Amino acid sequence: MRAATTDVSEHAVVARAVTALTQRTSFPLAFGGLEHDGAVHVSAIAGARTRHLEGLVVQASRGLGGRAFVERRPRLALDYRTAKTITHDYDRAILGEGIATLFAVPILVSGRTRGVLYCGSWAQAPVGDAVARPAFGIADEVAAELRIRDEVQRRLAHMPQPAETSGIAPAAREELRESYAELRAISAEVGDAGIRERLRRLERRLAALSREQADPALDVRLSPREIDVLACVALGATNAGVADALGLKEVTIKSYLASAMAKLDVTTRHAAVAKARRAGLMP
């Protein structure tokens, strides 16, 4: 079977993870893919010696990866050829590549398996904590990005088109602002610079959908963190609440807020929010 066509950006997420597996574990070979129509479609391969793994589609419950998929936990075949606890539906691909040890780690998003990452070696290789821990971490990183993508897409699906914003109801506008603030809080937790930049582009799209006409006379520049703080303040959060949302200390929030107020030339937090909106810095 050939793999289904997948979203380009999702494919890139898996490709980065597969490359990272060969760099951060002792396994020389890695491959993986996301779930589509109840099966895992392998879309990325790193370190393979042959083309046997290309286009592999793993059905739920079948093979090592299929078990990891339905059981939602890692599965290991130290000697794949003689493994008796799995079906051998995919021997042509796995043994054709010459794999002896195969380790499958599910990608779990909110309790649902969204894909499987595999590590393999051509000789039998023990899998201890030092090997397993990086693989678990990479699977968690993929899950985190997919979870963010899901939330962003869910919220964007309810966004009005730009032509509709002139008559948007106050309640709907507040929902847009809440989405914007939450997205910025999520972005603050992401360590990958590329992911953060994609999130920033989505934030700008949300802001453009809901902001009032910017006043060109207000030429103010705030740092990303200052905007993060004001976005939370706009929802009525206290300094402690902002600190909790952004994972910072309360004294740090006070510092960012004071800096933003100084740049905006205002004396209250609410005035800072209002002026930042007029300057087109946030919705």
Rank of each mutant, 00 (worst) to 15 (best):
residue 63 G to F: 03
residue 78 L to R: 12
residue 60 A to L: 06
residue 34 L to K: 03
residue 243 A to C: 06
residue 140 D to R: 11
residue 157 A to T: 09
residue 233 V to N: 02
residue 215 D to I: 08
residue 208 A to G: 10
residue 12 A to D: 12
residue 182 E to S: 02
residue 101 T to M: 07
residue 103 F to H: 05
residue 215 D to H: 11
residue 175 E to W: 11
residue 154 R to I: 01
residue 128 G to H: 07
residue 200 R to F: 04
residue 58 V to D: 00
residue 79 D to T: 12
residue 79 D to W: 03
residue 63 G to H: 07
residue 153 Q to W: 06
residue 195 I to C: 06
residue 75 R to P: 00
residue 271 A to Q: 14
residue 102 L to P: 00
residue 221 R to V: 09
residue 215 D to Q: 15
residue 194 G to Y: 05
residue 159 M to C: 15
residue 54 E to F: 06
residue 130 A to S: 12
residue 245 A to N: 01
residue 240 A to K: 14
residue 263 K to E: 09
residue 111 G to T: 06
residue 79 D to A: 15
residue 283 P to W: 04
residue 210 S to C: 12
residue 214 A to F: 08
residue 10 E to Q: 14
residue 267 T to Q: 13
residue 262 A to K: 15
residue 119 C to E: 03
residue 240 A to H: 10
residue 202 L to V: 14
residue 278 R to F: 01
residue 28 P to I: 08
residue 115 G to K: 05
residue 171 A to M: 08
residue 247 G to L: 07
residue 107 I to R: 04
residue 120 G to R: 01
residue 216 P to F: 10
residue 99 I to P: 01
residue 104 A to F: 03
residue 13 V to S: 02
residue 124 Q to S: 12
residue 205 R to E: 15
residue 82 T to D: 12
residue 131 V to I: 09
residue 63 G to A: 09
residue 108 L to K: 05
residue 254 K to Q: 15
residue 152 V to Y: 02
residue 126 P to I: 10
residue 220 V to G: 10
residue 225 R to G: 11
residue 49 R to L: 10
residue 15 A to K: 12
residue 108 L to G: 00
residue 145 E to K: 01
residue 132 A to K: 11
residue 86 I to Y: 07
residue 50 T to I: 04
residue 220 V to S: 11
residue 90 Y to M: 05
residue 73 R to P: 01
residue 273 V to W: 04
residue 163 A to M: 07
residue 146 L to N: 03
residue 278 R to E: 15
residue 25 T to R: 04
residue 281 L to S: 09
residue 135 A to S: 08
residue 155 R to T: 10
residue 90 Y to P: 01
residue 210 S to V: 09
residue 20 A to C: 04
residue 5 T to G: 09
residue 237 A to N: 13
residue 209 L to E: 02
residue 252 T to C: 03
residue 47 G to R: 08
residue 26 S to E: 12
residue 141 E to D: 10
residue 82 T to Q: 14
residue 14 V to L: 07
residue 32 G to I: 00
residue 171 A to Y: 07
residue 261 M to D: 05
residue 82 T to V: 15
residue 188 A to Y: 00
residue 142 V to C: 05
residue 259 S to Y: 02
residue 209 L to M: 11
residue 162 P to H: 07
residue 169 A to S: 14
residue 38 G to D: 06
residue 155 R to I: 13
residue 66 G to R: 03
residue 18 V to K: 05
residue 258 A to I: 02
residue 15 A to I: 04
residue 85 T to A: 15
residue 57 V to P: 01
residue 229 V to I: 08
residue 136 F to Y: 13
residue 40 V to K: 00
residue 235 L to K: 04
residue 219 D to K: 15
residue 109 V to A: 07
residue 41 H to F: 00
residue 173 R to C: 03
residue 130 A to G: 07
residue 264 L to N: 10
residue 280 G to L: 09
residue 230 L to G: 07
residue 233 V to H: 02
residue 101 T to V: 06
